[in-house]
Amino acid sequence: MLNEAIEGFHERDPYRPFADTDPTTGENLVRVEIKENPPVLEWGVLIGDVLHNLRSSLDHLAYILGGDPPPNEGGSEFPIFWSRTYYRKKGAPKIVGACDHAQAVIEDLQPYHRGDEARAKRHPLWFLHELYNVDKHRLVHVVTSAIDTVEYGVDDFTGDADALRAFDLTSFSDDRAVIARWPRTGPQPEPEMPFKFDFEIAFDENGPGRGNPVKRSLPWVRNAVRDRVLARLAPFLS
């Protein structure tokens, strides 16, 4: 349902990129006109439902592995930690009823095995953990849009590619936002549009979603739950 809603929104061409000139610097610009804003509240509810189902499947798995009911029934939960120290103190007790081999697999799945904190926090399970914790208290925040892909032909772009300061704003929410700029190489007519843009809906750059595209992020998390976690722990359910 969410994918269909997003695809239908983009089929209506809600964004129109257009060429412009910076009146102060004379640089060529590409701005974007927002003709229609996405239904952020509606999509936030749908995203929250996806996150809830994925997180609940992990917690239900931990509950069953712990003994159904586990000895720590009130504190049973699938642990997700970016720190080995925190896992030993707070994570391991959540699965105390599971057999040793299942506990070892769950420990091996932890994000902290990626090494440093920054890499651990880019793990799909940590991504799910953070987004789910936000969604428990408020709607997952998505921005108006983000640039997904950009194409331009050599014959169409006459500027210096090394000087092109484009697409550093991966997401935007303001009408007429600048999404590309590059210097003029001499007297030129009004700039033409040398680029072709594809847009995407993304999570807020300042939130746990870190500006990642929604349509790619949720399948990434789903696949991690299905192919990494459930596939490895399924043998312990029989």
Score class of each variant (00 low, 15 high):
Asp156Gly: 03
Asp168Ala: 07
Ser145Pro: 00
Ala146Leu: 09
Gly153His: 10
Val142Gly: 13
Gly159Tyr: 12
Gly159Cys: 06
His141Phe: 09
Glu151His: 12
His141Cys: 03
Tyr152Asp: 02
Phe167Gly: 11
Val143Met: 07
Asp168Ile: 01
Val143Trp: 10
Ser145Phe: 03
Asp162Val: 14
Val142Met: 15
Ser145Ile: 00
Phe167Val: 06
Phe167Trp: 08
Asp148Asn: 08
Phe172Pro: 13
Val154Asn: 12
Thr170Gly: 11
Ser171Asn: 04
Phe167Met: 08
Thr158Arg: 02
Ser173Gly: 15
Thr170Phe: 02
Thr144Ala: 05
Tyr152Pro: 15
His141Glu: 04
Thr158Pro: 01
Thr170Pro: 03
Ile147Tyr: 05
Asp160Arg: 11
Ser171Gln: 00
Val143Tyr: 10
Asp155His: 03
Val150Ala: 10
Val154Gln: 13
Ser145Thr: 04
Phe157Gln: 01
Ile147Cys: 06
Ala166Gln: 09
Ile147Trp: 07
Ala146Asn: 10
Thr158His: 01
Ala166Ile: 10
Val143Cys: 09
Val154Ala: 14
Thr158Tyr: 04
Thr144Ser: 06
Ser173Thr: 09
Asp162Pro: 14
Glu151Ala: 04
His141Ser: 04
Ser145Val: 03
Tyr152Asn: 04
Val154Cys: 12
Arg165Ala: 11
Asp160Asn: 12
Ala161Trp: 01
Ser145Glu: 00
Thr144His: 09
Phe172Ser: 03
Ser173Met: 04
Ala146Pro: 13
Gly159Asp: 08
Ser145Met: 03
Val142Cys: 15
Gly153Ile: 04
Thr149Arg: 12
Thr158Phe: 05
Leu164Gly: 01
Tyr152His: 12
Val150Leu: 09
Phe157Ser: 02
Ser173Asp: 14
Asp155Lys: 00
Thr170Asn: 05
Asp156Gln: 02
Arg165Asn: 12
Asp168Ser: 09
Phe167Asn: 14
Val154Trp: 08
Asp156Cys: 02
Val154Asp: 14
Ala163Ser: 13
Ser173Asn: 11
Phe172Leu: 00
Ser173Glu: 13
Phe167Glu: 04
Val150Arg: 12
Glu151Gly: 01
Thr149Met: 03
Val143Phe: 06
Leu169Gly: 13
Asp160Thr: 10
Thr144Glu: 09
Phe157Glu: 02
Glu151Val: 07
Val154Thr: 14
Thr158Leu: 04
Asp168Val: 07
Val143Gln: 11
Leu169Cys: 14
Leu164His: 06
Val143Gly: 11
Thr144Pro: 02
Ala163Ile: 07
Asp168Pro: 03
Leu169Met: 14
Leu169Phe: 10
Val143Leu: 07
Ser173Arg: 03
Gly159Met: 09
Ser173Phe: 13
Phe167Tyr: 06
Ala163Met: 10
Asp156Arg: 11
Phe167Gln: 10
Thr149Ala: 02
Gly153Arg: 15
Ala161Pro: 00
Ser173His: 12
Thr149Cys: 01
Asp168Asn: 10
Thr144Lys: 02
Phe167Asp: 07
Asp148Val: 02
Ala166Phe: 08
Val150Gly: 13
Ala161Cys: 00
Ser171Phe: 08
Ser171Met: 05
